[in-house]
């Protein structure tokens, strides 16, 4: 059991609940902050998050609360699982209660639409905390909650953050890897959602496995190209947060973004597709901001462009994919990784 016995998760959605579930294996008390009083009640009385993890019995160590000050007090480690659109508002509130010795770890895979800032950057701006990390990787909540093995990556400039998260979360069903490239890890986690939408479109359109593999491999090139521009380390994209998450999210019905893509391909409008999923799919927001950013900076991202045309311009899938296939030929590998002497 980790040295600090109390930890906190801010956000009681499906992933927040999952993180709390994992933490409960290593801590005496896990405080889970959320706003929905009915869900709080169901967690505290029936050990179940009826809204986001129905049918899963949560450990009794998890105590839900809507009192942010109480949730934050006394925890040396806090995980923040709030959708990107609401993230800054909650971070600002957290900032009122935390102190500089507390560690904050974001699990949100998205960027702030107005500023293109990562969630860790938002935390750094809105709170006095400096020791900040980001958790990412192929982590479907539904699988984790059923005890299936999983790997995650925690990124931080501070070794202490990496070590504390490894101690707090690691266990017989989860391996936690460390990475210093926090921006690269966050970028990978956000960008892959765009390609999950595209993969869903390919799947439902019956374009086949070859097409999907082509898209995934080229997506990796696009992501690395984008990351390189923002001074992230392209090799981060070869790890769990990059290729690991990309493979999972582009192939699974458990991915909300994948399902959005599938529903769009089946002829639903974006609004209908979002409504049918019933939960936030970060990819649709990320797609918009990455498209704008890439256009403005002149970064070549044909898959992002194609997905944007389908999602936001209602262009037909077949015509957009045909355009993609007829683009000029390019080299397969863009980045060369040299080995040290």
């Amino acid at each position: 059991m980790a040295a600090n016995k109390v930890v906190t998760v801010i956000g009681g959605g499906s992933f927040g609940t999952t993180v709390a579930y994992l933490l409960a294996a290593n801590h005496e008390k896990v405080k889970l902050w959320l706003r929905d009083e009915a869900v709080i009640n169901s967690i505290n009385t029936r050990n179940e998050n009826t809204k986001y993890a129905p049918g899963i019995t949560l450990p009794t160590a998890i105590v839900a609360t809507s009192d942010l000050e109480e949730a934050v007090a006394g925890s040396s480690l806090l995980f923040i699982s709030i959708p990107s659109r609401a993230f800054r508002g909650v971070a600002k509130e957290i900032g009122k209660h935390v102190t500089g010795d507390q560690i904050l770890v974001t699990t949100t895979k998205g960027f702030e639409q107005e500023t293109f800032k990562s969630m860790s950057e938002v935390l750094a701006e809105e709170t006095p905390c400096l020791k900040i990390g980001a958790l990412s990787g192929p982590n479907f909540a539904a699988e984790i909650l059923r005890g299936k093995p999983v790997g995650s990556v925690v990124a931080s400039r501070f070794n202490e953050v990496i070590e504390k998260v490894q101690d707090a979360l690691g266990g017989k069903t989860i391996r936690i890897y460390g990475n210093e490239d926090i921006y690269g890890v966050e970028l990978a986690g956000a960008l892959k959602n765009i390609y999950a939408i595209c993969s869903g479109i390919i799947q439902a359109g019956g374009y086949g496995e070859n097409a999907k593999s082509l898209m995934i491999a080229r997506a990796l090139s696009e992501m690395s190209r984008f990351a390189f521009y923002f001074k992230a380390n392209p090799s981060t994209f070869l790890g769990l947060a990059g290729v690991g998450d990309l493979i999972a999210t582009c192939n699974s019905e458990l991915s909300r973004n994948f399902r959005i893509g599938r529903k769009l391909s089946e002829g639903l409008t974006l609004e209908e597709a979002v409504k049918s999923i019933g939960q936030v799919a970060e990819g649709i927001y990320t797609l918009k901001i990455v498209k704008e950013k890439a256009d403005r900076l002149g970064i070549h991202m044909p898959i992002v462009n194609a997905t944007y045309k389908i999602v936001y311009e209602q262009k037909s899938v077949s015509s957009v994919f045909e355009e993609l296939m007829l683009l000029p030929h390019r080299k397969d590998i863009e980045f060369k990784f040299t080995t040290p002497d």
Binding site: G95, G100, T127, E160
Partner: peptide
């Protein structure tokens, strides 16, 4: 902080509750 809320900087240097050096942490600070 940016909202003019006071920040207790002493907390930044605590290791297990007492002030101490930490080579890697201090380099990042």
């Amino acid at each position: 902080d940016k909202y003019s809320r006071p920040v207790d900087i002493y907390k930044y240097i605590l290791v297990d509750g007492v002030p101490d050096f930490s080579f890697q942490r201090d380099r990042i600070y």
